[in-house]
Computed example of a mutant assay.
Amino acid sequence: MVGVLDEKDDRHASADGKEKTVDGSIARLARMIGRDAAELTLPEWREVARWFSEQQLRKIHDAASLVAGPMARDVPIVGAGTGRWQIRRLAKRMQRRFVDFAEIIPADDAVRGEASSVAPASAVALLAGFQL
């Protein structure tokens, strides 16, 4: 709904088993807050989705601030996985350099994004000596 996830990153069925369209997402979001999808316009539903995204980022920011507090200001924030777009926002908010795991993983260019989306498995594979 907020237009930041690539369709290939969405690997699981929707919570209600229905289509992953904008209308389907609106219906699920509406149910989450006890409303009917017809009660708001598309721009209003997008604003609700952005609000949830912001709440998620605030929780991550609070936790990251506790961890990063004693670290030097030049220590970057590394983002990996399908949510790295959100971590890029976090780095900007924390005024730290962002490093995308996809850019530093030693893998073929064709699979870097995919390898980043499954970063823990990619890291284990690299530690075990496999080439990505």
Rank of each mutant, 00 (worst) to 15 (best):
E44N: 01
G83S: 10
D9H: 12
L5R: 14
G34Q: 06
D109M: 12
Q55W: 12
L127N: 05
L40N: 02
Q131A: 11
D23N: 12
V78K: 00
A115N: 01
K20L: 15
Q86V: 12
V4A: 09
L29A: 12
V2R: 09
D10G: 03
A115S: 14
A102V: 06
A49G: 06
G69S: 13
R46C: 03
D100S: 06
A49E: 05
E19L: 13
R112V: 02
V111F: 05
E47H: 04
W45R: 02
D6T: 01
D23M: 08
D16Y: 13
R88Y: 08
L126Q: 03
G129T: 07
I87K: 00
K20D: 12
R84D: 01
R112G: 00
V75G: 01
K8M: 06
L127D: 04
W45N: 00
V124I: 15
P120Y: 14
D23E: 15
G83W: 09
D62Y: 12
D23V: 12
D108A: 14
V67W: 10
H61C: 11
W85M: 06
R50P: 00
R84N: 07
A15N: 10
D74V: 09
D109K: 08
P43Q: 04
R58W: 04
V111S: 03
G3I: 03
D109E: 11
A63K: 13
V75A: 09
S122W: 03
R46F: 01
V99C: 02
A119G: 03
Q86R: 10
A128C: 08
E7P: 10
D74M: 01
Q86H: 10
S14H: 08
R50H: 11
I60F: 11
I33P: 00
E47R: 08
L57K: 15
Q55Y: 11
L42V: 11
Q86A: 15
R11F: 14
E19I: 05
E54M: 07
A37L: 01
V99T: 11
A107M: 03
L66N: 10
W51H: 09
E19H: 07
R73I: 05
A38E: 15
I104E: 01
A102D: 06
R112A: 09
F52W: 15
I87F: 12
R58M: 09
A121K: 08
P120V: 13
A128H: 06
E54S: 14
F101I: 01
A49N: 04
L132G: 03
A125P: 01
R97W: 00
D36N: 13
A64D: 06
Q131F: 02
A91F: 05
L5G: 06
L42C: 00
L5V: 13
D9W: 05
M94R: 07
Q56C: 03
D23I: 08
Q55F: 12
A115L: 02
R46L: 08
A125N: 08
L126M: 12
A63V: 15
L126W: 10
D16K: 10
E103Y: 00
K59S: 10
R11V: 15
I104G: 00
D62F: 13
K8G: 02
A115W: 04
Q86F: 08
L40W: 10
D16E: 07
E47M: 02
L66E: 14
F130Q: 10
